[in-house]
């Protein structure tokens, strides 16, 4: 079909698969950073200290309103201006981690806010400690509504890793570009990259949905019988 070369496809496959591991690692590390920093962002917006509250909210808004690819360039190139050299990997992980931390902080916030005020009051009435209140009562209830958002952003960060190629992180897109310019053939590398992304993101999305239903059923919060 359309001059598709199978032998070339097979030839480039090992390098693409190797690069897939880099892509997965970038997504995994970036998501790990985002999960933790996002929680810090979310909790910072719950403190009674006005200035922290306000500045974190504004920072989150700013990061969410501007393009990730520009943020990647910014982090990568601004360092050297102050004699601070970040490797492409470090700069990329900082940029993508912070970007998704902003998104996740909104997911956490919405999750926490979805727990009715009465639940906090009931914990107070039972004299539960703050830690117990969060871990035993509030978080288990905040989690199911937050899971779909968290899952979407896991898939989202994975699909955004190709942007890291612009500063030379050797993930899938970067490898496909290299393969293309070596051989002057773009059909197979780019198509294969597309297929690899589909092959990972579709099952992941499906798996996440199954996981969500399982969690809310396990916690007994859906009406269906166990």
């Amino acid at each position: 079909m359309f001059d598709w070369k199978w032998d070339f496809t097979i030839e480039i496959l090992p390098r693409l698969i190797l690069a897939t591991f880099n892509t997965l690692m970038a997504a995994g590390v970036g998501y790990g950073i985002a999960l933790i920093v996002g929680l810090i962002f979310a909790l910072a917006q719950r403190t009674p200290i006005r200035i922290i509250n306000w500045s974190v909210r504004e920072a989150v808004e700013f990061i969410r309103s501007t393009p990730l690819v520009l943020q990647i360039f910014f982090v990568f190139y601004v360092g050297p201006q102050f004699d601070l050299r970040l490797s492409p990997w470090t700069a990329g992980m900082i940029a993508i981690g912070l970007h998704y931390a902003s998104y996740l902080s909104e997911v956490y916030r919405a999750g926490l806010e979805s727990v009715p005020q009465g639940q906090w009051e009931a914990c107070r009435a039972l004299n539960l400690s703050t830690r117990r209140t969060y871990f035993r009562i509030i978080i288990p209830q905040a989690l199911p509504p937050a899971l779909p958002g968290m899952g979407n952003y896991l898939v989202g960060i994975f699909k955004d890793t190709p942007m890291l190629s612009v500063i030379g992180v050797a993930e899938l897109m970067h490898t496909a570009n290299a393969l293309g310019s070596e051989s002057y053939r773009f059909l197979e590398p780019y198509t294969m990259v597309g297929i690899i992304f589909l092959a990972i993101s579709l099952p992941t999305a499906f798996g996440l949905r199954t996981f969500e239903t399982w969690v809310s059923k396990t916690l007994g919060m859906s009406k269906s019988k166990k």
């Binding site: 009715p116 009465g118 639940q119 009051e121 009931a122 107070r124 009435a125 039972l126 004299n127 009562i137 288990p140 209830q141 916690l219 007994g220 919060m221």
Partner: peptide
């Protein structure tokens, strides 16, 4: 607080 218990208009049971 341990001396006092309370029941609420909307029960506030833990749904999970």
């Amino acid at each position: 607080r341990s001396k006092i218990g309370m029941c609420f208009q909307h029960f506030n049971l833990f749904p999970h």
